[in-house]
């Protein structure tokens, strides 16, 4: 199976070279209703994130006296993949991903600044072509910054896998579903620290370092692009 993922000339199924990222497209602040919003396209994967808050918590019990609570809802549209698949909101897989994203952001967001409030992050995957998790994290990061919520650094994520003896960056759907070992990593670019690692397959230790290094390189590259997007979107109210 993995032989098909990498052609003899060293090209992947979508024509990329192993350490190549897919095309990134971002829009920051596209919605008026949400406090912060962002849209990210990574190749054919399309993801939307909207942030509400910090705000009054919906229920009395859902608050902490010393910091803000972060809630994440992760949804995948029924039309996002080749086969229509309707998922209920309680789908375990969706809840699990939401939980990972929440815990990825918690240590980075300065929640102590807003006791007794909540921050809601809503993620909607519109089209799936692999890399939904890292697209979601990148979109959420942009949306958080758009909402003006303080964070100690950006949170940037990327995936990498291993096939035909080579580490591959930013896996697409075909590569992900071919049972290639895949690692998703979330990094804080300024410090280089990793806040999240997610791998659900087996990968020999000898190759793990290469895959991890490639994923973090991907993160660094994405971090630059995300920062550019934020700066471009920065429009302070101007005097008339």
């Amino acid at each position: 199976m993995s032989r098909e993922l990498l052609a003899p000339e060293g090209l992947r199924v979508d024509g990329r070279r192993p350490p190549e990222l897919r095309r990134l497209l971002t829009r920051v602040g596209l919605f008026a209703v949400a406090d912060g919003s962002a849209y990210v396209e990574l190749g054919n994967t399309k993801c939307l994130a909207a942030v509400y808050g910090p705000k009054e918590p919906r229920t009395q019990s859902a608050q902490l006296h010393d910091r803000a609570v972060i809630n994440v809802e992760y949804n995948v549209a029924s039309f996002s993949s080749g086969e229509r698949k309707s998922r209920t909101r309680r789908d375990k897989r969706l809840l699990e991903i939401a939980s990972v994203i929440k815990r990825t952001f918690e240590p980075v967001v300065m929640t102590a600044t807003f006791p007794r409030s909540e921050i809601d992050i809503y993620i909607q995957i519109l089209q799936l072509d692999g890399g939904a998790l890292h697209a979601a994290i990148n979109a959420s990061c942009l949306a958080m910054i758009d909402a003006g919520i303080p964070m100690s650094d950006y949170v940037v994520a990327c995936s990498a896998g291993f096939a035909s003896g080579t580490a591959l960056l930013d896996l697409n759907y075909i590569e992900e579903s071919a049972e290639t070992p895949a690692l998703t990593v979330a990094m804080l670019p300024k410090s280089g620290k990793l806040t999240m690692l997610n791998m659900e397959s087996r990968l020999h230790l000898d190759h793990f370092k290469d895959v991890l290094d490639l994923a973090t390189e991907g993160c660094k590259s994405l971090a630059e692009s995300l920062d550019e997007a934020v700066r471009k979107a920065c429009k302070t109210p101007r005097p008339i």
């Binding site: 602040g29 406090d35 912060g36 808050g53 910090p54 705000k55 300065m110 910054i145 758009d146 909402a147 003006g148 919520i149 303080p150 964070m151 100690s152 934020v230 700066r231 920065c234 429009k235 302070t236």
Partner: peptide, 21 residues
Amino acid sequence: SVAGVVERVNKLVSVRPLKSR
């Protein structure tokens, strides 16, 4: 900690985010 413009008032430095509650 936010994206915005640096404001300096005497020795106090702050950053005002472009959008925030």
